[in-house]
Design a protein around this nucleic acid. Structure first.
Length: 713
RNA sequence: GGGCGAUUAGCUCAGUUGGUUAGAGCGCUUCGUUUACACCGAAGAUGUCGGGGGUUCGAAUCCUCCAUCGCCCACCA
């Protein structure tokens, strides 16, 4: 107040809004208030809990645009609920991201002219740990820069000792319950990364692969992989194929094959498609899933042809030690010379599996691994969805979820990498058991680590302290799982399975799935394309609020988003617009009596905003967040600023003191509510302004959500 | 081979699950520098809502077929 009893407006409003002057200071104020931790909220005990678990970002690099979107969404959900009077908890975390991080680190080693192979495992582990911890704190500071109101005191890292122990205990329990088993089965082997991968860690790509037909004794067989055929000694056909009726199952015959004469056996199996090719094939059980299944059904021999590095073994004779890619041509040449190559279909299209990280062709190999038996877990997950205990937004994702769940095969959780949680298992004489401690003499510990999703699948449980931690009773099940549509199988499906298995309850009632954030041309961002946008560069340029609301407005769940700078720039202008609305209101409402009676027409304007807030509130409750954001944006700019402020000018320059008093009180109350509704979307600028209003006390962050619906539940 | 989605203004997208002249942002045209804001304001142009057929008093919205694009899953060598 100045000497005349008038409010003196902060001079900062005379200049455009500058996010850089504000954001760090405001975030510190929020953090120091302690309200990120819901236990510190006023009347915390009487509040209903609301819980979101943050998808822990991989601690192996900078945040990307997708992280900015999830921070914007989850933070606005948390802030909204906090203002609505909930005991709002958003639990942050960081993921060691096993294989992913190891791949990132290996690339770094490569640049330095080093390789993980030949390194002492303990040294390698220590190096990756240091790398991960450095990136973890980098990642945390970036999440803070985006304004995340998560409770850092509850932050979890997937390699925290209690997490590791919980994950290992789960494995042991699943072993006891018969839900994990040690199986010698076909696995997806990446010859570059020297580890097996789960089915969803491979990419199936349709490619042009020449299809060769070869003479195999009295038969003609087809293959796209001549380099695997050395050991083929079974010829398989459909039992009802009349063309081959004269051959009986088990018949043997001699033939001249790649490296000389062999004895082959006839096998009848209905897995063979009669219509495909000649209806006859030979099998390579060690290097093909289908062939493996056939061999298993009939108890046939299996022999490894290709080693773990992708080179031919001694069975290949003169081709031993050759990489399969270079061997193929030479083998074909030899086959042709021996008159065994009948024909080549150069145009054949075939589905090839590749490593999702390095695109190396996956080599199916038979290996002893730990598998999770998915069927019983999937059954419970589907039941939970059917019962309406888990709801998907957008709802069509439920169909995708269900379809995958109904068809998913057992899950290989063994990884031959050191960067991860060790599998607590021991082997002796072909026996395998799950145990933290050695069962006794002669037992050898499993050297493998868990698929990283085996631990992150238990994330809602471990972050809330399952089974007897202090938050488990209050905050589990959590409320919303907000994450990317692209990890519905990797993560969401597994979390539901683990949650139901361990706690008997689904870990959340709502799954909100956002789409991918693409570049301005709607192309997927990738390092190789060089179109990756660092969100922190955008916040520096346009302010965090602008980036956040720019990612929210018009972005319907499940739909990919083209991230365009001009859109973000538009919301930078909006932040400045709100700033200048405040300037106008403060300049023209000095000495406002907040209790002044509103004129009938002003009362109507007040009622108009009340109705809008009711509408926006129901949008928020129904997760129509993109609409809620647009509505308050539109009201602030095109109703309040363009129309109400304009029509206020003649009132303030007139001499109707009742009208002036009414209008002053009205504008102040409209401004406060606009700031409050806008806060979850644009937390920094709204809080900054709130702190400059003479009539407000405390942080906007914990102010009540306006409107009649604001009562605590 | 199976599944999911999209197709609305030049561009990026909404359209709250059938209801008056279909909306926003950016871009574009014209005007405006009046002390909230030029990071601005006013006015304006632009759409057979992919195509055919159907249901309905009424369809961008529901049904059906077709076309094009995108994504996901997949053990025919």
């Amino acid at each position: 107040m100045d000497v005349l009893g008038r409010f003196t407006m902060d001079e900062k409003f005379l200049k455009p809004y500058n996010p850089a002057d504000t954001e760090q200071r405001i975030y510190t104020a929020w953090e120091e208030s302690g309200y990120f931790n819901p236990d510190n909220l006023p009347d915390a005990e009487s509040r209903e809990p609301f819980t979101i678990v943050m998808p822990p970002p991989n601690a192996n690099g900078n945040l990307h645009a997708g992280h900015a979107l999830f921070v914007a969404l989850q933070d606005l959900m948390t802030r909204y609920k906090r203002m609505r009077g909930y005991r709002a908890l958003w639990i942050p975390g960081a993921d060691h991201a096993g294989f992913e991080t190891q791949v990132v680190y290996e690339k770094q080693l490569e640049k330095e002219g080093r390789s993980r192979f030949g390194m002492d495992p303990k040294e390698l582990y220590a190096e990756i740990l240091a790398f991960t911890l450095a990136n973890k704190s980098n990642m945390e500071s970036q999440v803070k820069a985006l304004g995340a109101s998560c409770d850092w005191s509850r932050e979890k890292f997937t390699l925290d000792p209690d997490v590791v122990e919980r994950v290992q205990q789960t494995f042991i329990k699943m072993f006891a319950d018969g839900l994990v088993y040690r199986g010698k089965r076909t696995v997806n082997w990446c010859p570059k990364h020297q580890t097996s991968l789960s089915d969803i860690e491979t990419e199936s790509v349709e490619e042009n692969t020449p299809f060769y037909t070869m003479k195999y004794g009295p038969f003609e067989i087809g293959t796209v992989r001549p380099e695997t055929k050395f050991g083929d000694k079974y010829v398989v056909m459909h039992p009802e194929d009349e063309r081959y009726a004269k051959y009986a199952h088990g018949d043997t015959f001699e033939l001249e094959w790649i490296n000389g004469p062999i004895t082959a056996t006839v096998i009848k199996d209905s897995a063979v498609e009669m219509e495909f090719g000649t209806g006859v094939m030979t099998i390579t059980p060690w290097h093909s899933q289908v062939d493996f299944e056939i061999a298993k059904r009939h108890g046939l021999d299996m022999e490894q042809i290709i080693d773990w590095r992708g080179k031919l073994l001694p069975i290949a004779g003169e081709f031993e030690g050759m990489k399969i890619t270079e061997a193929r041509g030479k083998i074909l040449e030899k086959l042709a010379n021996k008159g065994l190559l009948v024909s080549t279909d150069e145009k054949y299209q075939n589905v090839v599996k590749r490593c999702y990280k390095c695109s190396t062709m996956i080599e199916p190999q038979v290996k002893d691994q730990w598998f999770v038996k998915m069927a019983p877990l999937a059954k419970k997950a589907i039941e939970a969805v059917n019962a309406g205990n888990v709801r998907f937004i957008p709802d069509h994702e439920e169909k995708i979820f269900r379809h995958w769940m109904e068809n998913t095969l057992d899950w290989n959780i063994s990884r031959q990498i050191i960067w991860g949680i060790p599998i607590p298992a021991w082997f002796k004489d072909g026996d395998a058991i799950a145990s933290l401690e050695s069962p006794g003499e002669g037992w050898v510990q499993d050297a493998d680590t868990f698929d990283t999703w085996f631990s992150s699948g238990q994330w809602p449980l471990v972050t809330t302290g399952y089974p007897d931690g202090k938050d488990f009773a209050t905050h589990y099940p959590t409320d919303v799982m907000e994450t990317g549509r692209d990890i519905i199988f990797f993560w969401v499906a597994r979390m539901i399975c683990f949650g139901l298995y361990l706690s008997g309850k689904a870990p959340f009632h709502t799954v909100y799935l956002h789409g991918l954030v693409n570049d301005a041309n709607n192309k997927k961002m990738s390092k190789s394309k060089g179109n990756v946008i660092n969100p922190l560069e955008l916040t520096e340029k346009f302010g965090t609020d602008a980036l956040r609301i720019g990612l929210i407005v018009g972005n319907t769940p499940g739909t990919d988003l083209a991230l365009r700078e001009d859109k973000i720039k538009g919301y930078k202008n909006f932040a400045n617009k709100v700033w200048n609305i405040t300037r106008f209101v403060l300049e023209n409402t000095s000495g406002a009596d907040q209790m002044a009676e509103l004129t009938p027409s002003d009362q109507e304007l007040r009622t108009e905003l009340d109705a809008l807030i009711t509408d926006i509130t129901s949008d928020m409750e129904a997760y129509r967040i993109y609409l809620a954001a647009e509505k308050i944006y539109h009201y602030a700019w095109h109703r309040l600023a363009d129309e109400l402020l304009e029509e206020s000018k003649p009132i303030f320059t007139g001499n109707d003191s009742a009208a002036i008093a009414s209008r002053k009180a009205l504008l102040r109350s409209l401004l406060r509510d606009v700031l409050a509704v806008l806060h979850p979307f644009m937390p920094f600028v709204t809080e900054e302004i709130w702190q400059s209003l003479p009539e407000t006390e405390g942080l906007l962050m914990i102010a009540p959500w306006p409107g009649q619906t604001a009562k605590a539940p």
